[in-house]
Write a protein that binds this DNA or RNA. Structure first.
Lengths: 132, 132
DNA sequence: CCTACATTCAACCTTTAGGTTGAATTATGC
DNA sequence: GCATAATTCAACCTAAAGGTTGAATGTAGG
């Protein structure tokens, strides 16, 4: 039942990352705090548009806001990236495992049927040329 | 000028990942090939809806299609995940580097100003309790 | 051949994303 | 106090996402 919440927050994180403007903002913030106007400056769009992007980054908790008088200091928050990276890594691991199993199978066949063994006995079960 | 293309493909990858249905489909496919109907079966939505999700996964090149008679065999393609993981890792690295630099600064101050040195001289410049 | 299956295409609906402009809010600094 | 700066709020637009249903396509198999 905790799954459904982390599902949603993963959604929010990935949605937030899936836009070049927002990725640029995050890039900037990963180098240090900034105000809204500063963040908006490099972009050929209204301040309002950037403000909305920031809200989406906040929804994903990738960005935090600290009100300091009339200006808002935005800062990067790494946490959600970890979850996203973990998800991606898990699929990669699964897939790699599967390909390795396949390699093993193919190699077993090869080893059994092969009539021209060229450096065959070196125990090479590792992932090698498989397309990917 | 190659950047703009890889930007777009990163967009497509992250957009594709930013939906729970599509992540579930990818999860399934990372365990092995499947047909459209098989993929659709676990979901409480029309076959058509799933078909559309698959098209988005194909646009991101996360899924490949092999027509075999009247049925289409879908398979997982890991490549785009690598790019996404790389982007995420780069921001994490930047951020971590920055926090470490900050820690170093703070520690330098602490070391200079501290009047109640409790195990101070142990050369602890490492990242420790910083929030994250 | 003809039916039944696997899949997409086409048209439609509703919600959200991404952007605009203009007005409201709130703090600063003379 | 008052102009001005830093933000957001509100209303609107257009396009895309995510879903539906119904018809079209193409292949399989008795």
């Amino acid at each position: 039942m905790r799954d459904i919440a982390s599902q949603r927050s993963l959604d929010h994180t990935l949605i937030a990352l899936a836009d070049p403007t927002r990725r640029a903002i995050l890039q900037r913030l990963s180098e240090g705090e900034a105000r809204v106007t500063e963040l908006a400056q490099p972009f050929a769009m209204s301040l309002n548009a950037v403000s909305k992007h920031i809200r989406i980054l906040e929804r994903a908790r990738l960005v935090r806001r600290r009100r300091a008088g009339r200006e808002h200091r935005l800062s990067f928050n790494q946490g959600p990236l970890d979850a996203a990276a973990a998800w991606i890594e898990a699929r990669r691991a699964l897939w790699t495992a599967r390909l390795d199993a396949l390699d093993a199978l193919l190699c077993a066949e090869d080893c059994a049927a092969s009539t021209a063994p060229d450096k065959v006995s070196t125990g090479q079960t590792k992932k090698k040329g498989r397309s990917r």
